[in-house]
Amino acid sequence: MGMLTILSTLMGASFTTAARRLKHGPLRPGWSFKFEATVAFMRATNERVIHLDAATQRAEMEQMSMPSSALKRVRREPVDAGGVPAEWFIPREGASDNVVLYLHGGSYVFGSTRTHGDLIARIALGTGARVLGLNYRLAPEHPFPAPVEDTVAAYRWLLSTGVKPEQVAFCGDSAGGGLAIAALVSLRDAGVPLPAGAVLIAPWVDLECSGESVVAHERFDWGDKRMLLHWAKWYVGNADVRNPLISPWYADLRGLPPLFVHVGSAELQHDDGVRIIEKARTAGVRAHLEVWPEMVHNFQTFGEGFPEAVRGTAKLCEHLRSVLRQSAPGSAVA
C-alpha cells in the first residue's frame, strides 16, 4: 500500500465521517471528529486488507507506521533474544534495571516493533525501564504454538542474562495480551519463576469470539467478528481453539502474578477483558480491570496526537511502575 492509497482511504473515511456527523451527530457522544475519522480509516483499511494474503497484509500494515517524538527519545538496539528477533527500546536519559517484555498485537498475523514502535517508546519513557519488543513468529506460516514458544524462549533468555524475575513485567495489546497470559501459564506449568506481573491492553483471550461485545460493538470499533475469526483460523491451524494456550479464557489461572487489564467500553474485546479478570480473581490472582468510557480497541496505539491515547498510555505506565515496584516515577509520557 503506497502513500496514495493511504491518503485516499483517509480522505474517504473523513468524508464519510463528516457526512454522518452532519446528519446524525457523533457516532459516540465523546468522540471528536479526528478520533471518529481515524476509527473509520482503520476500519476501511481492515476491510480492504482482510482479503489479501498474509505477507501482503503485513507489508501494508508496516506502511502505516508513523514517526513520533517518543521514538527520537529512545535508543533502539536489535537483539537476538534466545533465538527470537527482538529490539530494545531504551530511554536516552538513562534507564532502570527493570525490563518490560512487550508483545505486539496484530491478530497473530501482522504487527512488529515497527508498527508498535511509538507505543513501545512511550512505555519506555513513561516507566524508565528498558523495553524489549519481541518480533515473534506469525501465522499462518507459523501457527500456534510458535508465538508462545518464542515468548517463553525470550523470557528464559532474559533470566539467563542476570535479569531477576521480579524485575520483569509483561505487557501486550490484543493478541499480544492473550499471548502474555498464555506464556505465563506455560512458564508456570514448566516451573519457571514468573515475572512480577502483566499489564495488558484488551487481551484477546477467546479466539472463538463468544463474548457478546464482539457483535454488540461492531458498529463502533475498527474490526468485526468475521475478521477476527478469519485471523484466528490462521493462527489456530489444526489445533483446538479451546486449548488454554490458544484461548487463555479456558486456562487455569491459579498462581499467576498480578494482572492489570485495560479495555474500552465500546470495543470488540470488552468482554474478553472483563471475563479474564473475573476468572483471575476467582482463581486467587490479584487482578485489576480498568474500563475506558467510549474507547475502541487499542486506542492507546493511536499516538501522541490523541489525548485519549496519551492518557491511556500514562495510566498503563503507572500500572507497570506499580508492578515493578519502582520507587521513582518514569519520565513524562511523550
Rank of each mutant, 00 (worst) to 15 (best):
S247C: 11
H116A: 07
W204Q: 03
L324Y: 01
S160A: 15
S327D: 11
I90V: 15
P248N: 02
M227R: 11
H319M: 07
P26L: 13
K315A: 15
W31K: 03
H297T: 08
W249M: 13
L200C: 12
L132C: 08
M42V: 10
P78C: 04
W88L: 09
A239Q: 13
P248I: 03
G117A: 13
A18N: 06
R76C: 11
V199S: 12
A182T: 01
K164A: 13
L228G: 01
E62F: 01
L324C: 07
Y155I: 08
F89G: 02
V131T: 10
M42F: 07
L132G: 06
A251H: 00
V49T: 11
W231K: 07
V261Y: 00
Q57S: 04
V205M: 01
T9L: 14
L179S: 08
V274E: 06
G2V: 01
V148M: 08
T17A: 03
H288V: 14
G111S: 05
G82D: 10
L4S: 15
G25I: 07
R226T: 13
A239T: 03
Y250Q: 14
A266M: 08
P67E: 07
Y136H: 15
H230D: 05
P145T: 10
A54I: 02
V49L: 04
P244R: 09
M1C: 09
H217K: 14
I277G: 11
L194H: 01
P145M: 01
V168I: 11
G330V: 11
A232R: 09
T56W: 03
E62K: 09
E218P: 02
E87I: 05
D173A: 07
L289I: 13
G305Y: 05
P329Q: 10
P193Q: 00
I201F: 10
V296D: 05
L320Q: 01
A59D: 12
F170Q: 02
P293E: 09
W249P: 00
G105R: 00
L207K: 06
